[in-house]
Amino acid sequence: MKSLFTGVTALAATGFLLAGAAGAHAADDNWYDQSALLTSCQQNVDGLGKADRCRFEPAKREVFTGAARQVGSTVHACSTKVGVGRQTTESRTEEDSISVSAGVEAGLSKIFSASIQTSYGHSWSYSTSETEEVNGEVPPYSIGLVTLAPAYQRVTGRMVINYPKRRHGHYEWYAYPTLTQYDPDEMQFSTATVDSRPMTANERKSMCNGQGGTANPPAASHVVIHLARPGYRQGAELSAKPKN
């Protein structure tokens, strides 16, 4: 997984979301951006100070299947089939559409987690590793590997940020992060497969001491151990940009 807040997803909303002339003034300040707003929830930011209260309002949660990748090492089977049970560990550290410094990651995650748990009754954990076991078999005289397309969850919403004094005419400002995280609690939305191909003559010679030279070569195969259920979503996109 990528590290926290690497910016893999487009912003749910862009620009500086203000009412009236205050928006024009804020847009002239290149430090006044979504990242600065989120950072001010945890520490002082030039021109902003530190927010006295931040709360996350989730709008939509999606569960989906991520891209497949190999787990464990490639194995070879000689005269008998070989099991390819593998344990794979995934990080639950989330990725965010708005980049912030490493120093504020954990604090923001606590804010996100509490709101997501309350809104959807679903856990959201910061920097926690989970281990899943994938089991399959590689046929005789074949080379195979296991792939896993894990389940993910994505949450969009807004962070409501309050300051003790007005900032460019307003006490309250908004940031719109999109959060994405590996989700071991939803493994029914993951797909695990075993892919194998027959060994070449040279591979049989080098890997199996020349065994099986006259045996019929096995066919290449793609065996689905577990097929993901279709994803789903809860909630909806934010209907409009709020006015503050």
Rank of each mutant, 00 (worst) to 15 (best):
A67M: 00
P58G: 09
K243H: 14
Q117W: 13
V104L: 04
H168C: 08
P218A: 07
A228H: 00
K165D: 13
H168P: 01
K110L: 10
R92L: 08
Q234A: 11
F64H: 04
R154H: 12
D28A: 15
Y163D: 06
A26D: 12
H170Q: 11
R53Q: 12
R166L: 12
R233A: 15
A12S: 13
A36E: 04
G20I: 07
N244D: 06
E172L: 06
V194T: 05
V82A: 13
A24G: 09
V155I: 14
C41E: 05
G85R: 07
T80L: 11
R154M: 15
W31G: 07
E186Y: 08
Y163Q: 11
D52L: 09
S123P: 11
L18K: 04
E90R: 01
E132Y: 05
S109T: 12
S206E: 13
Q211E: 05
A68G: 01
T193Y: 01
E62V: 13
P230C: 05
T88I: 03
G103F: 06
M1P: 10
S142V: 12
K241V: 15
A77R: 02
Q188N: 13
H170N: 13
Q211G: 03
F189I: 00
Y32P: 00
D46S: 14
L145N: 03
W173H: 15
A102L: 00
N216G: 10
S196Y: 02
S79E: 14
G47D: 01
G15P: 09
T9Y: 11
F189H: 03
E57N: 11
A12F: 11
F64T: 00
G213P: 02
A149K: 05
H25M: 14
R55S: 12
A149R: 05
E95M: 09
V134L: 01
S91E: 03
A215I: 02
M207L: 14
D185N: 10
K243C: 13
A10F: 08
L4Y: 04
E105C: 04
L11V: 10
Q188P: 01
Q87W: 07
A21R: 11
T9D: 15
L148E: 05
T156I: 15
R204S: 08
F64C: 00
P198L: 15
Q153W: 09
Y152M: 14
K2T: 12
H170V: 10
K241R: 14
A36P: 05
R158L: 06
G23L: 04
E133R: 02
N202T: 12
F112G: 02
L38A: 03
V224I: 15
S239M: 01
S99P: 02
S40C: 07
